[in-house]
Each structure stands twice: as C-alpha cells, then as structure tokens.
Design a protein around this nucleic acid. Structure first.
Length: 351
DNA sequence: AAGCCGGGGAT
DNA sequence: ATCCCAGGCTT
C-alpha cells in the first residue's frame, strides 16, 4: 500500500476530506443531538456544553432529561438556575450550568448570530465550542480541535504530544485541512473516528479510513504511556446539622461546587503529613450550640479534577434550630429535590 | 503557552 | 487506582 503524502496539497486535502465525509456517511454514531429536529442552536448549544470534558455516553441521559424538561428554546427562556442545576446534578463541572444560565439571560436581551465570532463571546463557549457550533449549524469553517482531533492529527502527522509546540502545530494542521464547506460533518466525523477507531489506548487501524495518510500506521508505531502526575490529596470536614427529620444545607456561593447545595463544609487543607489530619480532627471535636449529640461518621472520598479529597463527616444533632441567611433547613426526605453533587450525595448516604 | 479548574464514568 | 473525556478560563 502506498502512503499518501501531502505533496500536491490541494489534491491530497480533497482526498483527505472526501474519505472522511464518506466514512461519516456510512459509519456515524447515532446520537440524539444529531437528529434533524435537533439541528437548531438551542439543542446543539446545550449538547456541546454538556459534552465538554464529558463522555458521549454520560451526556445522552442528561441531554434527554434536559430536552424533556425544556423541549424548545422558548420553553427554556424562563428557566431558573436552580432548575438547571437540578438537571445538571451528577454531570460535574457545575460552572457549565451557571454559564448556560448566564448565556440565557444574554440571549433574552439580544439576538445573536450563530457565528464563531459571536459565540465565543458567550460565557462557557470557548474556541472548540464556537468552532463546532458554527460549523454544524452555519457551515462555518473555523478549525475544530478537541481531544479526539488532537490525538488523530498527532498520530497521522507525527506531531510529538510532549513537545511545547504541540498545540500550535496541531492547530496549524487542523486549519490547513479544514474544508471550506461541510465542516460540520467533517469535524464530527473526526471525533467519531477518534472515539471509535483511533482511541487513546487502543487503535483499530485496519478499519481506519485515514490509514493511508497515517504516519502512526505506516511506521507501525506503538502507543506510548503518558507520564502520570500524582494527584494532590486534601482533607476537609463537613458538618451535618440535624433537627428531628430536618437537615441544614447551604448553597455554595464560592468556587466549590458552583451553585449547588452542600452541607456546611470547612475549607480543604492540602495533605502533606498527619499534621493536617490532626488539625481537621480537632474541628471534629468542636463545640457547638444547642447540641444534644455529636457523632463522627468517618469520611468519604472523592476525586476532583486536580485533587483527591478525604472529607470527614460530623453529624450534629441539635435540640433547637438555628437560622443563618446562608442556609436553610430541609426535610431529609426532600434531599433529592435539591441539586447536590455526588460528593454530597455520598455524605448523605452515610448519615 | 501553561496551569488550573474543586467531576465523573469506565476499567 | 488509573485514565481521559466533543474544554474554558486565567495568568
């Protein structure tokens, strides 16, 4: 077999694009945001935000729930943040839900064009999302580069992912290869190839439409292990105040679990030695008002993006409710009516 | 350009 | 326990 080199660039680019589009016609994944009725800004926008750093398989359930609650953009216009967060519960990166709400308020005030230049001004829409949405809906040809496409171009054109210039080089290639028209199908095709054939740790080069172009295939390279970076460990304490059948919860206003509900939680200390544990454990023995019973309920563990958290749980049963503007008392049985992250759900299950 | 962001699911 | 996902934002 002959390795196709990009010498006569116009010709090879046409071949590259045609092969990809042809493959997509035959093999594309059947995803709900690709259905004809979802080829509108509202649906594509929501799906693209959900898909940021999140698996397709996970997103499908959430996209379905979202569209069930708000089938159309008009029905979504008056949505409030809590309802959005409730749908978002468990999907992670809750800042995305807040950004959707922010964008909604902007869209209510003024109409925007579905173009790269206008989309990228919206909160939560960066280079990838602006390029993808404008390609899918308006056939714009800004280079779409996500994790899949980076990996594919890196293998096909032998771009060293450890190099400092990696991203720059990938973008240069991506821009060269992006078709003038049909970019929506083209970029989604590459992402499908990345997700189903040119996978991170496993490749199926024999069925890959790109193998004739691919340095990785031609030179029979092996997949290298990435150097792993150990996650930092942090420790904290969460306090579950209980009065009869009610529990005290607060809304996260700070960066922690953006906008979701939480139990009162200490700041997190970076774990370097037993000293931090000791310090946190002192908090566990803290004196509180109106306390009839204190109990330490062990801890839960949770993996965030950049650190691993060990969260100690202290349950404090009190005989008189206190009130704080930051929080509210809810019945335990109503817990799941409020948006909590999986971390707090883990805590709830231990009490 | 690089590091951070306080998630989560699959394996 | 490890990997990495249709990234965005800040510095």
């Amino acid at each position: 077999m002959k390795y196709i080199k990009f010498n006569n660039f116009t010709k090879e680019k046409k071949l590259w694009v045609n092969r990809i589009i042809y493959w997509y016609d035959k093999n594309k994944r059947n995803l709900m945001w690709r259905k004809p009725e979802n080829q509108n800004f509202y649906s594509v926008w929501i799906s693209e935000i959900m898909l940021q750093q999140t698996n397709v398989q996970t997103v499908e359930k959430y996209f379905l729930a979202f569209k069930k609650k708000w089938p159309t953009f008009d029905s979504f216009l008056n949505a409030n943040l809590n309802d959005i967060l409730k749908i978002w519960q468990g999907l992670g990166y809750y800042q995305r839900a807040k950004n959707i709400y922010k964008t909604l308020q902007i869209l209510k005030k003024k109409k925007i064009k579905v173009t790269y230049n206008e989309l990228i001004k919206l909160p939560g829409i960066g280079d990838y999302s602006a390029a993808a949405i404008s390609a899918i809906l308006e056939d714009q040809n800004h280079a779409v580069v996500d994790g899949n496409i980076k990996r594919i171009l890196s293998r096909v054109f032998n771009i060293d992912s450890q190099s400092k210039k990696f991203t720059t080089q990938v973008y240069k290639k991506a821009k060269e290869l992006t078709p003038n028209s049909g970019n929506g199908d083209y970029c989604q095709a590459l992402m499908d190839i990345g997700a189903t054939i040119c996978k991170p740790k496993q490749v199926n080069c024999n069925i890959c439409p790109l193998k004739k172009f691919c340095d990785f295939f031609i030179t029979k390279k092996k997949i290298l292990r990435k150097k792993l970076v150990a996650k930092k460990k942090k420790v904290g304490v969460t306090f579950v105040y209980e009065f009869e059948n009610e529990i005290y919860v607060e809304k996260s206003e700070e960066a922690f679990l953006h906008g979701l509900m939480k139990f009162q939680t200490s700041d997190f200390l970076e774990y370097r030695s037993n000293y931090e544990y000791t310090k946190k454990k002192k908090l566990l023995d803290m004196k509180n008002n109106f306390v009839s019973k204190n109990s330490n309920l062990g801890f839960v563990e949770h993996h965030f993006t950049n650190f691993h958290l060990v969260l100690f749980i202290k349950k404090i049963e009190i005989y008189k409710k206190f009130y704080d503007p930051k929080g509210l008392w809810i019945f335990k049985k109503d817990f799941f009516n409020y948006p909590f992250s999986n971390l707090m759900i883990k805590v709830f299950k231990k009490i």
